[in-house]
Write a protein that binds this DNA or RNA. Sequence first.
DNA 1: TCAATATTGTTCATGGAGGCACAAAGATGA
DNA 2: TCATCTTTGTGCCTCCATGAACAATATTGA
Lengths: 210, 210
Amino acid sequence: MKVAEPTIERLVQYYRLLTQLKEEGRRVISSQEIGEMLGLKASQVRKDLSYFGEIGKRGVGYHVDRLHDHVSKILSHPNVWRIGLVGVGRLGEALLGHKSLRSDKFGIEAVFDVDPNKVGKMIEGVPCFHVDDMPKILKEKKIEIIILTVPAQAAQQAVDKAVASGVVRGILSFATAPLVVPPDVLVYGVDIAAELEKLLFYLKSSTSKE
Amino acid sequence: MKVAEPTIERLVQYYRLLTQLKEEGRRVISSQEIGEMLGLKASQVRKDLSYFGEIGKRGVGYHVDRLHDHVSKILSHPNVWRIGLVGVGRLGEALLGHKSLRSDKFGIEAVFDVDPNKVGKMIEGVPCFHVDDMPKILKEKKIEIIILTVPAQAAQQAVDKAVASGVVRGILSFATAPLVVPPDVLVYGVDIAAELEKLLFYLKSSTSKE
DNA sequence: TCAATATTGTTCATGGAGGCACAAAGATGA
DNA sequence: TCATCTTTGTGCCTCCATGAACAATATTGA
């Protein structure tokens, strides 16, 4: 069963919204309303939600609790993912403490750096190891996911050491560098500078219009 | 002239690669090679690059310097953008110091927070003001772009104050919250948690296959 | 000079995502 | 009970991005 990437992204949004609605005690909601709150067309919402089976009630809408459970199950993982964070610069540390990355569905089990002032210490309650020890530590701790927050020049080298462990299956990279990985390793990149450039490009274009 | 969003994103990648090639003294490169280095099909590269006019030489390839200039011009801005950063938490501070956001094409002119310990001080060489003073300060400093790094609950309120200035035209948001803005304000969102969830979802799916 | 080779620019087809519109199904009220 | 109204689920159409194939152009070597 293959699901489109934009759909997954929206499912995460639905999940957040539903969690909030649940807290507010809301019982039922329509695709129309969901769409308005998230800036989507109602038909888009319905298509996304019906993708995993009929879950709404025609003439009524979606039962908030039931839909929340449903989306939760779609996004749920069979196990708790164990994550390693590579590069404890300011961005890495910010992510370590970030609410979004505190969840019971995954946890950051180790961080890695090359700075001797950091290696061996606990950072935000997580032990810090040397990047060179990644193959060993990742295997020991059964870490399958890597969050990469190192400078661009160091990115490929760090990735090579990580995949050398043989246990890493996914990488979330914040480095603005193209990464080469074995075909069975999945890479997602968040390119902050590129996002800003895109924004600026379209702003420039729209300047002439208005 | 309208350009597709994925194309812009790749142009940024081309630009980075070309800058590097230039430093290495490389004179000429083919679409094939560019594609291999960035993980793209050669035909894709050619289509992107020819979109803004014929710039390569058939039978030869692309002249690195010339192509670099060309892409640079496409991505260039008529003026230096003035940016404000809202929310000086750890993520905000990390971005302030991040290399990717140091450029001669834009600059962060002010930061905003509600914390009295920060307001009035200089942070990373940038003056910090209270969020409530945004309308005034943004207008004074002619800031057209906002980078939003506040908690989700505070996001909409902060955006409302920012757009109230009347000068803000674009927002790069790191908050995991849907934002309502006037139609003439452009919003790009970077949703870190959603990216991670996507990665985990596809890893889960591929577990059964292998 | 001309054949062989290399590489771009472009056309065309394929697939996929979004959105409209309508049928199906449940609710409501007389 | 039945007509009307609401809201979902889905078929269909359109648009856009990708990728393959080919024609056009430049280089090279004999």
